[in-house]
C-alpha cells in the first residue's frame, strides 16, 4: 500500500508538471505580439502621398498580393498565420512614418519590404488606414452591371456595361470603373479580363472571349462580371452561355469508381465492407456472450459448493 501511494504521488507530480507545461506554452502562444518600438526620427516622417482613389486602388492591389495572405482580407491579422492586426486602435494610433519604418525593418515572420519603392509602400499604408476608417469624402454609390454577348463569324466578343444608379432610379453609364470578368470554375473564378479593365465613357468594357475554355457537356459556361471600385457598393452579374468547349461525358467520371466520393461508392464494395465489418463484430459479441455464460456458470457452481 505504501508503495502504491508513493507511486500515485509520483504520477500526480508528473501529471501536474505536464499540465503546467501545456498551460504555459498555450497561453504563451495566445499572447499578442510584443510592442515594437520605433525610433523617433522614423515616427516623424510625413506621408507625402495623398490618400486619393488612385493611391488607395494601387495600395489595395499591392495589399492583395503581398499582405493579405498573413494579415487577412480585412486586416485583422487572421490570414494563414497569426499576424498583427492592422485595424486595432493601438495600431491606428501610430504615425504613417512609424508604419513605413516597420515595413522597412520587418520582424519575426513579418518580412521586410525594403525592396519595394517607398511610394508603393505609402499607397499600401494609405490603404491599410482605410481598412478601419473609410476616407470621409467617399460616399458609396450604387451601380448595376450587365453582360452582352456578341458572336461574330470568327470571334466571340463580350461586353460588360456598368451603370450608376442614382437615388431617383435613373441609370447613367459610369466611366473609369474597374470591372472583373471571369468564368466560374470548380474552385474559383477564372479571370478572363486583364487586371486593369476600366470602363470607357459609355460605361463599357469589351473583351475578346478566349476559345479554349472548357465548359460542361454542352459547352455551357457561367460568366461572372463584378464591379471592383472603392466608391461603389459591390455589384455583380452572372450569365450562362455555350461558349465553352464541349466536355464529353467521361465514362469513368460517371461510373461508380473506387476513387470517387461516397455517392458513387461501388455497391459490391459497400456490401462487402459492411457485411465483413458487421460479421466480425457479431462474432466478437457472440464470444462475449460465451464469456458471460462462463461467469453465470461459475456463480451457479460457486453457490452449490
Amino acid at each position: 500500500m505504501v508503495k502504491m501511494n508513493h507511486m500515485k504521488s509520483g504520477i500526480f507530480k508528473i501529471g501536474s508538471l505536464l499540465a503546467a507545461f501545456l498551460f504555459v506554452s498555450f497561453f504563451g502562444f495566445a499572447q499578442d505580439f510584443a510592442p515594437w518600438p520605433v525610433p523617433d526620427e522614423a515616427s516623424v516622417v510625413k506621408n507625402p502621398v495623398e490618400a486619393n482613389k488612385t493611391s488607395l486602388e494601387a495600395g489595395k492591389s499591392l495589399y492583395t498580393l503581398q499582405c493579405k495572405a498573413c494579415h487577412g482580407e480585412t486586416g485583422r491579422g487572421d490570414g494563414l498565420i497569426k499576424a498583427a492586426s492592422l485595424v486595432s486602435e493601438n495600431f491606428q494610433s501610430q504615425t504613417d512614418g512609424a508604419i513605413l519604418w516597420k515595413l522597412h525593418q520587418g520582424r519575426g515572420q513579418m518580412p521586410s519590404f525594403k525592396a519595394l519603392p517607398d511610394d508603393q509602400l505609402w499607397n499600401v499604408i494609405n490603404y491599410v488606414r482605410s481598412l478601419s476608417k473609410k476616407p470621409e469624402d467617399i460616399i458609396m454609390k450604387n451601380a448595376v452591371v450587365s453582360l452582352f454577348f456578341n458572336e461574330k463569324a470568327e470571334q466571340k466578343e463580350l461586353t460588360a456595361k456598368v451603370e450608376q444608379v442614382n437615388d431617383n432610379g435613373e441609370k447613367l453609364p459610369a466611366q473609369g470603373i474597374k470591372v472583373n470578368v471571369g468564368v466560374q470554375k470548380y474552385f474559383g473564378i477564372l479571370p478572363i479580363s486583364s487586371t486593369s479593365n476600366y470602363t470607357s465613357e459609355n460605361g463599357e468594357i469589351n473583351i475578346v472571349f478566349p476559345n479554349n475554355i472548357i465548359g460542361d457537356e454542352n459547352g455551357e459556361l457561367t460568366i461572372i462580371a463584378s464591379v471592383d471600385d472603392m466608391e461603389f457598393n459591390p455589384a455583380r452579374v452572372s450569365e450562362n452561355i455555350s461558349w465553352g468547349q464541349i466536355n464529353p461525358k467521361d465514362y469513368w467520371s460517371e461510373r461508380r469508381a473506387l476513387w470517387k466520393n461516397n455517392d458513387y461508392i461501388p455497391l459490391w464494395l459497400l456490401i462487402s465492407f459492411t457485411v465483413g465489418a458487421i460479421s466480425v463484430w457479431l462474432v466478437i459479441m457472440y464470444v462475449a456472450l460465451l464469456v458471460r455464460k462462463i461467469k453465470i456458470e461459475g456463480d451457479k457452481s460457486g453457490l452449490s459448493d
Partner: peptide
C-alpha cells in the same frame, strides 16, 4: 469471472 473449472466452463 468466477472461474471454478467446471466441465461446462
Amino acid at each position: 469471472i468466477g472461474w471454478q473449472g467446471t466441465q461446462e466452463q
